[in-house]
Design a protein around this nucleic acid. Sequence first.
DNA 1: ATGAAAGCGCTAACAA
DNA 2: TTGTTAGCGCTTTCAT
Lengths: 335, 335
Amino acid sequence: MITIKDIAKMANVSTATVSRVLNNNYPVSQEVRERVLNVVKEFNYRPNDVARSLKQKKTYLIGLLVPDISNPYFMEIARGVESVVSHLGYHMLLASTDEDERKELKLLKLFYEKRVEFVVLATRQNQATILNEFIHQGLKLVMVDSEIEGVKADVVVEDNRYGAYQLVQHLIEQGHQKIGIINGLMDISTAQERYQGFHDACIDHKVPIYESYILEGAYNRKKAYDSMVHMINSQSKDLPTAIFSVNNDMTEGVMMACKAIGLQIPNNISLVSFGDIRVPELIEPKLTIIHQNPLEIGQKAGEILLSRISNSTSVPYKKHIISSKIKIGSSVKRI
Amino acid sequence: MITIKDIAKMANVSTATVSRVLNNNYPVSQEVRERVLNVVKEFNYRPNDVARSLKQKKTYLIGLLVPDISNPYFMEIARGVESVVSHLGYHMLLASTDEDERKELKLLKLFYEKRVEFVVLATRQNQATILNEFIHQGLKLVMVDSEIEGVKADVVVEDNRYGAYQLVQHLIEQGHQKIGIINGLMDISTAQERYQGFHDACIDHKVPIYESYILEGAYNRKKAYDSMVHMINSQSKDLPTAIFSVNNDMTEGVMMACKAIGLQIPNNISLVSFGDIRVPELIEPKLTIIHQNPLEIGQKAGEILLSRISNSTSVPYKKHIISSKIKIGSSVKRI
DNA sequence: ATGAAAGCGCTAACAA
DNA sequence: TTGTTAGCGCTTTCAT
């Protein structure tokens, strides 16, 4: 592999000069510049970024750690990050944690050893103490999607509580008093907050909350399907009139359950969802949902990290809340 | 930042010894090993991988270049790659080309400067000559999804021609003689091959091909929708009895068009698709499709690149074809 | 405007 | 088993 030394020799200059013309950061005479450039072109020389990184202590690497890189939601976030950092020459190192705490830790460690300048972390586990330890060692972090209480890092999340609140309020306004919820894993901040929104809306409007209508969906479609089928079968004489599904994946499960059993939405049961299902254009009815914007989360995270990289002055960590808009469909029956 | 030198000093050994205990590649006495390990732990030392890469000329980096990192199809491929390379300590650098040839070239160049050990490229453009130039300079490449004729690299693709062939043959077996096709961009290999399959099936079974039934879908949903609507409106007295949609995204567009206009599938028109639509569970009817397996493409690409990295002996480049299975649904009417 | 040389943080060949 | 040291390919300070 051809190095700067080779180029220097061929152009009859020092390596310093070659570096200067390549980086355009110090005065070089026209004549020498051209001579060097010619040799560079002739040999198709490409500087070794590893060496440069070592010398400059700058890798232009951003690590992205998400539960699953094939999950469109997270990849929209990634896309958002990429869109703002790529212009500055940053590249993204991507990896899936598979929701495995040990793997996540291992990846954080590896990212750190690769000297990524920042990591964007979408995690649903791990303790604040462990993450803070990394941070203490100099790892820069910005958390997206979920929050972990006590972590010393910026956070970009959706307005989960208020989004959920709006959805449930809408149900109540349409006359619903028996509202069920398909819940996420309660050790995850997003699930807690969305549940909180449900809870607050019910309390504020004096609507009772029934234990038996609180279903465990575990943030996955299969589980949501099973829970829903089970409830319908076991409480068929006294079903809720409306369901609030806490994420889009589970919403698909709920709809599949209704379809399988023959419950019509919204005739037999109403449904609202945090996040839209896929290809809604082909599916009836149009759901009333909270519209999510993962791209914006990613962009925000990208901006934050860029500004932290450039401004070494330590401004305090902040929680950025991306507001979520409700979109009214026809999945709620007025009763 | 703490370095191997610091550790060496604190443990009263040479840097070489620290390196040895960390890498476990040379004999070190128990006593010294423990001493070093203690200091490492105490200071939470993490070796600088940039320096190691420079020295070893090994980055453990795989570059992935796809049109769009938020496209689930490509991210399934990425997932496949990751699943096989991550065990060996490889990391993935990911970037979107946005179908922009210049951007793609720039990214290839940057990946090269970062000294990625391999790049997995899913591209739909660029000439073989340009790519071969990179390869000539030492860039290792494996192409996925699409093929570019003449590129000196391994290729992993689906069996596009035969998949399409099966689909169209199925239509013909069900009695269809007037078959339309929503086509991709014909400068992309996958589109060419799928069209070829359509063409061959028609020829082999002596079914006529009508020019006016060959629609431009441009591999995108919106265009497919528009083309479909236009055809239905302009040729309403003599529509094809069946449509072959060349990719899943366009299939969604076709279904939306049918829905908008009130054409029922398969009653009024039959439909087969290369690749399944999203959430098929919630959509009627079940389509007859070719089942795609991007994960497998990624895994295969990962295996290939791993074996090329380890076996320096140059085996000839090969085209790997992932076979595609037909899945019969209820979207084709027997006539 | 240019060159010499130190050094980024490691690894590994060589010596002891 | 351990230490010394050269060197990976760059950048940048200091001379000139």
